[in-house]
Design a protein around this nucleic acid. Structure first.
Lengths: 342, 342
DNA sequence: GTGAAAGCGCTAACAA
DNA sequence: TTGTTAGCGCTTTCAC
């Protein structure tokens, strides 16, 4: 491989001139630049990034820290949005599963110059990663929020707005008694910030609208959604609508309704507040949702981080996305008779 | 940050001794090692990877090259499998969208020492990435295959085995006339190797079993699956079973059947040969499938690549996975009357 | 506008 | 078993 020295020799200039011709960090005559560029092309010169890193150039790699059980299907849209924004800006995303030592490794690699910063997904209210990154002064941005977000970059959903949009719509339809499915949390099971925040918000908003909201806990998988449907039939036969706060479990709930012979939406309305667009049309009827602009949010978070890395931001970037009501096939006016399994 | 020189001074040894104490590339007395390790701990020394790379150490980063429209939900399981195997072996995956310049960039970064090799997903029969990587002698492994796989590492599905398993099962049930849904290809639309290979295989296997197989082309999304269902009702009302070769379109087909009032499986059997496990239970009834061990395949491909990177492999790693018949709710004996929309 | 040169922190060949 | 040392290719300061 040709080095910068080879280029310098061929172009008849010094090595530093080659660098500056390439990165534009100081002015250079058009003629000299042309000569350098020609030599670069002739020699098929490619810069050696590791050398640059050692000499002080900044890395263009960002660690993408996701949950420790892999990237979930719900998280995928965020990842794809983040990835495309990163690529457009000349950065790359490095997959990084969460874990106690993983975050220390990120710290090491940033200090080593190999990584520029980190993008955190699936944040918990009390997220250890944040502690470490703040202490070590590693630049990072979050998709989601923690308990105390002062001076932190985050891109999150606007839960108040989403709940308000969805519940106001159910009120319009005439629903009074609703159930909502949330991920099991507290009790040491999970403290994903999204679960806690949504829980609090939905109850408050429903009450404000004069509705009664009953919580059902379910892990975020289809089987748990099925169990939730069973629970509704057994314990809450009077509810006329169900609001899903997680993505996959809501689809499981819908399938289970079909299985149990509960006609959707005539006998029960289902509204999802968190289903990614790619999953909405996977079931029948297609889910009515308050949309999650996951792609945009992923992009937004990455761009916030890059702005910080490149010194363009002065204050933390904190952005909330509400999402829009998308009426599809799972909602209608409440039934008048009691629901039952057939 | 403390450097290797600081550690050497504190431990009272030379700098190279510190390196060897850390990487074990030459023998060292227990006493010396202990002293070095103690200094490392006291100084909180972290190796500077970029420096190591420049000096000749090998990178532990692998480019994960996926389709240019982002990671598809079907590809996610492969990614997660690959990621966990990489992490277990001390490697990391760098997200890399396909594209003409992208593959050149991988080439540059491998030459720069920043990347060790590449893992290719969503391979096409005539894949440009392979051309470049072979020419530049970049180590890589594929999930999928190209037309000529001599001397290449690949991990792929065993299409013959999968088709045989699925179609033999349909024969057992008594089906004679079947449709199969494949991604539109040829005609410049797509040349994903999986589409072409599956097409050829399914026809051959069906014929061998004395069945007639009719192809329906559909992009791999729910809406196209719905259209495929329409097409079956209109043009192939005599078929009693449908085999889906793609993942998402098959689920769309199933939803559409429910929508159109076609009772599954009584009026039409549906068998999927490619649906990832996470999507199977998203619809009702749950799909009967020939399973795709995507997680295993992702792991297998990464490990093959790492073996090559670390000089442990002498010949190309070529591995096929058949998958097992998993009977769920979408298949049964053929109906006797003609199918129709209600 | 351009050049010279001093590192960056590590690896590994060579020497002892 | 351990030490010495010459780079790896680039960035950047300082001088012209």
């Amino acid at each position: 491989m040709a080095t910068r020295a080879d280029v310098a020799k061929m172009a008849g200039v010094s090595e530093s001139t080659v660098s500056y011709a390439l990165n534009g960090k100081r002015s250079i005559s058009q003629e000299t630049r042309d000569r350098v560029l020609e030599a670069v092309k002739k020699l098929d010169y490619k810069p050696h990034f590791a050398a640059g890193l050692l000499a002080g150039a900044k890395s263009k790699s960002i660690a993408l820290s996701f949950g420790d059980v892999g990237i979930s299907s719900g998280a995928l849209e965020y990842v794809n949005g983040a990835e495309s924004a990163a690529t457009e800006n000349g950065y790359h995303l490095v997959l990084w599963p969460s874990g106690d030592e993983a975050i220390n490794e990120i710290n090491n690699l940033v200090k080593s110059g190999l990584l520029a910063g980190a993008l955190l997904m699936e944040t918990k209210l009390d997220d250890k990663r944040v502690e470490v990154l703040v202490r070590e002064k590693i630049p990072f941005a979050m998709i989601g929020r923690v308990a105390d977000n002062r001076r932190l970059n985050y891109t999150d959903r606007d839960f108040e707005a989403a709940a308000e949009t969805g519940i106001a719509y159910l009120e319009t339809l005439g629903h009074k008694e609703i159930a909502y499915i949330n991920t099991a949390r507290g009790r040491g099971v999970s403290e994903l910030s999204v679960d806690v925040r949504f829980h609090e918000t939905v109850v408050a908003v429903a009450n404000a609208h004069g509705m009664n909201a009953y919580e059902i806990l379910a892990e975020n998988n289809p089987a748990a959604g099925r169990k939730a449907m069973t629970e509704i039939l057994e314990k809450l036969p009077f509810v006329t609508a169900v609001v899903g706060l997680s993505d996959v479990s809501t689809i499981g709930l819908l399938s289970a309704a079909t299985e149990f012979g509960v006609r959707i939406p005539d006998e029960l309305s289902i509204l999802s507040l968190s289903t990614p667009t790619t999953q909405i049309t996977l079931s029948w009827p297609p889910l009515t949702t308050v949309s999650v602009p996951a792609d945009l949010m992923g992009r937004d978070a990455v761009i916030a981080l890059i702005d910080e890395l490149e010194g363009r931001s002065t204050k933390p970037h904190q952005q909330l996305y509400g999402g829009e009501l998308e009426i599809r096939g799972t909602t209608t006016a409440p039934r008048t008779r009691e629901i039952q399994r057939t």
